[in-house]
Amino acid sequence: MTDANPDILPAGLFDLLPPRAEHAARLTNSAMAVLSSHGYDRVAPPLIEYERSLALRMQGTGRQHLFRMVDPASMRTLAIRSDITVQVGRVATTLMASAARPLRLSYAGQVLRIAADQLNPERERLQIGAELIGHDNVAAAQEVLRIAIEALASAGVTGISVDLTLPDLVDTLADTTFPIDRQTIDTVRRELDMKDAGALAALGADAYLPLLYATGPFDAAIAALAAIDAGGALASRIEALRAIAADLPGDVAVTLDPTERHGFEYQSWFGFSLYADNCAGALGRGGTYAIPDGQGGHEVATGFSLYPDALLDLGEGDNRQPPANILFLPLGYDRAVAARLRAIGWRTVAAISEGDDAQALGCTHRLDGSEIVLL
């Protein structure tokens, strides 16, 4: 079958044109500057790795998202990354295994998924993140969450909100106060995600019903969670959540959904999602987790990933306007003068022919000798 237009891109893939491509670069640079200022050193893993390495480190989550191909050099199966976090884990536990802990690493790059989902139609996305490797305590969670919020704020994001969760909550209760058959745990998790009280009762999991009502604004939700008689099984987690929430900036709205699991398949005791006004879906997620070391052991870590592509559409109408201070340089312009102007912030566009139209090229000013003339 011949395509009607061979230049059409595959579903879920898009070109970034001006000014959105420039906006994406600014978002990346501002976020990475925040991470660097907090001592997170940048790493840049390759786009493609051996499929076996990526799949093993995904711990059974997300393998279905991997594009696979055969390497003609080694005849082994390769995969395009769908998540940079697992690559950073590989770097930390191999090439940087002897580095002092906590090890702070950051990254930014594109990831590719084999199929889109309903909430995220894009198959290629920008992922920016940081990993604090060697600790998963409250202090680590506080640092990582604060930095994630600061990185978004640096990109001009307002109305930031945080939703906290306890990814291993059902497992913890099933092993202690509210025992259920191990084969029933996944079903209980699913019904909690669906907020289906009737289905929980039908499963004989009535003890888990109060968790459905421990959601919403943090203060009320954490009080409802603390009121559940779990024989002390939740005490340390509740204390930790209160400490984390108390450490957040006052203008950040905090909610709690203790049984939320979507996007937290490999997190351990703590997870969070980040949202912002006028942005559909989560801008990022993070939490505590364990990094497999490839030898049957693991190392604890705390981190986050941001997916800021949605921010490119905020104020897009304004972004389509020509940037200020673009200076047209006519033929024969003084290069020394132009260099000095660029050094103080001007953006220049040089004429290539007599027919070049300064205004059509988006310029706001014209250089006339050493003088700047408004167009």
Rank of each mutant, 00 (worst) to 15 (best):
L192F: 04
A199Q: 07
T176H: 09
D196K: 02
I185Q: 02
V162P: 10
L145H: 12
T187Y: 10
T158G: 14
D168R: 14
I147N: 06
G198M: 02
T165G: 10
D175F: 02
D193I: 13
I185P: 02
V188F: 00
D171Q: 15
I180K: 07
L152A: 04
A174H: 01
E191D: 10
P179E: 05
I180N: 10
D186W: 05
T187W: 02
D181I: 01
T158H: 10
D181N: 11
A151T: 07
L152K: 05
D163R: 14
G159M: 11
P167D: 08
A174W: 08
I185N: 01
L192D: 08
T187P: 05
R146Q: 14
L192K: 04
V157L: 07
G198Q: 09
V188N: 06
A155N: 12
L152W: 00
R190Q: 13
D168N: 11
D163E: 15
T184I: 09
L200W: 00
M194A: 14
S161G: 13
L145S: 08
A155E: 09
L192R: 10
V144Q: 03
A197M: 09
I180W: 06
K195A: 11
D163K: 15
V157A: 09
A155M: 14
T176I: 06
T176G: 09
K195Q: 15
K195G: 08
L200T: 03
A197E: 13
T177R: 14
L164Q: 07
L173Q: 01
V144L: 03
D168L: 13
T165L: 12
E191K: 07
I149Y: 03
R182A: 01
E150R: 12
T158E: 13
L166A: 13
M194R: 13
K195E: 14
T158L: 06
S161Q: 03
E191A: 06
P167W: 01
T165K: 05
R190K: 11
D193M: 13
E191H: 15
L173E: 11
T158I: 04
L164V: 02
P167T: 05
V157T: 11
V144M: 12
V170T: 11
I180M: 08
I149S: 04
I149D: 03
D168Q: 15
G156C: 05
D196P: 07
L169P: 11
T184C: 09
A151F: 02
T158A: 12
F178G: 07
D168F: 07
S161C: 06
D163P: 01
D196I: 05
E150T: 04
R190A: 14
T165F: 03
G156E: 07
D193E: 14
D175H: 11
L166Q: 13
I147H: 04
A151W: 04
T158W: 04
A199Y: 07
G156S: 09
L200P: 10
A153R: 14
I147F: 01
V162T: 00
A148T: 02
D181K: 02
L173Y: 13
G159Q: 09
V144A: 00
I147A: 00
I149Q: 10
L152P: 12
R189E: 09
G159T: 01
D196N: 12
D181T: 07
S161D: 09
Q183Y: 02
T187K: 03
R182G: 01
V188W: 04
